[in-house]
Amino acid sequence: MKRRNFLEHVGWTGAGIVWTLGATGTLSAAGAQEDRGFSFVQISDSHIGFARPENPDVAGTLARAVAAINALPNQPAFVVHTGDITHLAKAEQFDAARSLLQSLKAPLLALPGEHDAIGSLKGYFASFGRKDAPDGWFSFDQNGIHFVSLVNVFDFELMGKLGRTQLDWLKGDLAAVPGSRPVVVFAHVPLYALYPTWGWTTEDGAEALQMLARFDHVTVLNGHIHQIIEHREGNIRFATAAATAYPQPAPGTAPKPGPLLVPADRLLSVLGYRTLELVPPSDLHSEDHPLA
């Protein structure tokens, strides 16, 4: 990663969360990274089944991400996949994705994206569902962090929404959490209006964000956009992850969203995964790692 980018993102440290962007080497040189214990990894948008010039080998790039994560010296407590595991929600695509992701050393949490919800969420639930999350959403506490995993993909009844049922659940879930506890939220589609013209927003996301306003440290991690985008609203920090499959145009830079063709020798540099490390007591150190 270029030093220019690293410097740009150092600017984020003021709010208490250390945000940096770059390869491990850069950060080690900057003295910002050492073994701090609890960490987790985010990957997103693998689109298994996609086979177009933008990435003719999405299985290969996901496998590359898995290998890189397995090689991390500080193994993450878990890996979260923030959705669009498959391209068309076909059974064989879920099977292939599960087989690739099973080789992760760390436990996996996988959210559905709208591509995993085509027709229904049946295929997703069969391959990646959790017994303790019959509707898909769930929360848990680990190392002093309250984690909330949401489902905001399109559904016939609830298009582009979290929906009343999930919002009511979220309200009840957060009610018992002290405001000083760091909260990390996973969702596929951004919860804020990243670029509504392209549908890059959650219709009732604002209601969820209101519930999160009283917490001192909130980090929302999402996918869907296939590029690294950081954003902040008050105490809430949003980070959109790179895909493992293919990039998309920056908001508004093309007539429509969709797979973006980059020169083959550049593809791995725009795909990646993200590590997040807890810097006690409540800071979260985020770092994006390109696949090459």
Binding site: F50, E54, H87, H115, G119, G258
Partner: peptide, 20 residues
């Protein structure tokens, strides 16, 4: 399109499922 789509009836009387 390069992007995947569906053609899904509002009344669910037909549904293409995912079209690459």
């Amino acid at each position: 399109d390069d992007e995947a789509h569906t053609a899904t009836a509002l009344d669910k009387s037909f549904d293409s499922d995912g079209l690459g």
